[in-house]
């Protein structure tokens, strides 16, 4: 039996805010999302002694916790397990007093201050909000995908790789995630077929080299998946060659989809300016069109989707939130400011 990481940490559900242990009626900063951007922001706002709440959402740790091995985050020359990195971000945020709740925002109101965040279990108010909800895997949108999602179609190789021991899988996509996770799947699967719509990979060169050298990996170029086939279980995918128009069937037991991400911005439609792809529009100070609401990480980044960049924008958002609050306290009643 492979991969069985022993205990490396956990996500506390609640922590008292501030020394008195009272939950503040209004937080200085509410951060939506606990990935690299959100947790980095929390490290900065915590150190600025701002009362900080992080609403973790459905994937505490964010994308790194979904990644087997992170090799391009500086400071870890040997690479670091994504899960481990995510927990380090979290421990560091907590060390500086951020309160992290395992809850998910269900509605937001940015029309008046303080801003209101509804979650599954309660309502929070914040003077500033940093949105770091990230992005989620794009679905193929082909017949069979919904039916088999979680039962042969997956977007999480670290979660589900085990179920494909000695089986055949296909990976759809040609970027870093597709290739890195495809390589991970070779630990289990007998064969990993990469189906990519272009004639070359987009993934980083070093990943490409490893993929081409891996005897378990095979590549189907210029092809898109049109249907996922199967009755009870996945038996194959129908692919179409985009150059010749020919279709063919590739037999497989599982389909891992890594064709990019879509930003998680449904909650903000009508309240924040989004671009045509749905990403939050933020300026270089990570400000959205609503003063006091900032965005950081993949939710506002259609281009790079890197941990180091998400962390960087998180830091910017936090510093701008701090600046916003200090101006706020200057223009509002000074006596209202908590010590």
């Amino acid at each position: 039996m492979e991969i069985k990481p022993l205990i490396t940490g956990f996500e506390p559900q609640e922590k008292p805010a501030g020394e008195e242990g009272e939950k503040p009626a209004v937080y200085d900063v509410i951060i939506l999302g606990a990935g690299p951007a959100g947790l980095t922001a929390a490290i900065y706002t915590g150190r600025a002694r701002l009362k900080t709440l992080v609403i973790a959402g459905s994937l505490p740790g964010g994308e790194p916790s979904n990644t087997d091995l992170v090799e391009n985050y500086p400071g870890f020359p040997e690479g670091i397990a994504g899960m481990d990195l995510a927990q380090r971000f979290q421990s560091q945020a907590e060390r500086f007093g951020a309160e992290i709740v395992l809850d998910e925002a269900t509605a937001v109101d940015f029309s008046q201050e303080p801003f209101t965040i509804h979650t599954y279990s309660t309502v929070y108010k914040g003077r500033t909000v940093i949105i770091a909800t990230g992005a989620e895997p794009r679905r193929l949108g082909v017949p069979g995908e919904d039916k088999f999602f979680g039962r042969g179609v997956s977007a999480c190789a670290t979660c589900d790789g085990f179920f494909y021991k000695d089986k055949r899988v296909v990976v759809v996509g040609g970027g870093d995630s597709a290739i890195a996770e495809g390589l991970f799947l070779t630990k289990f699967a007998s064969e990993v077929v990469v189906i990519h719509r272009r004639d070359q990979l987009r993934a980083t060169q070093i990943l490409q080299e490893r993929a081409f050298a891996n005897p378990k990996m095979r590549f189907v170029w210029d092809s898109v998946v049109e249907e996922i086939l199967g009755d009870e279980m996945v038996t194959g995918v129908r692919v179409r060659n985009v150059k010749t128009g020919e279709t063919s069937v590739i037999e497989t037991d599982g389909v891992f989809v890594y064709i990019g991400m879509v930003p998680k911005t449904k909650l903000f439609v009508g309240q924040l300016k989004l671009d045509e792809q749905g990403y939050i529009v933020a300026d270089r100070h990570q400000r959205t069109n609503v003063p006091g609401v900032f965005a950081a990480g993949d939710v506002q980044d259609p281009n790079y989707r890197q941990i180091v960049i998400a962390a960087g924008t998180g830091a910017v958002a936090a510093m701008e939130a701090e600046r916003f609050l200090s101006e706020y306290w200057q223009t509002h009643h000074a006596e209202a400011k908590p010590s």
Partner: peptide
């Protein structure tokens, strides 16, 4: 669950 699944504890 699997121990490597970040969504599972939820």
């Amino acid at each position: 669950v699997t121990p490597t699944c970040p969504y599972c504890p939820h």
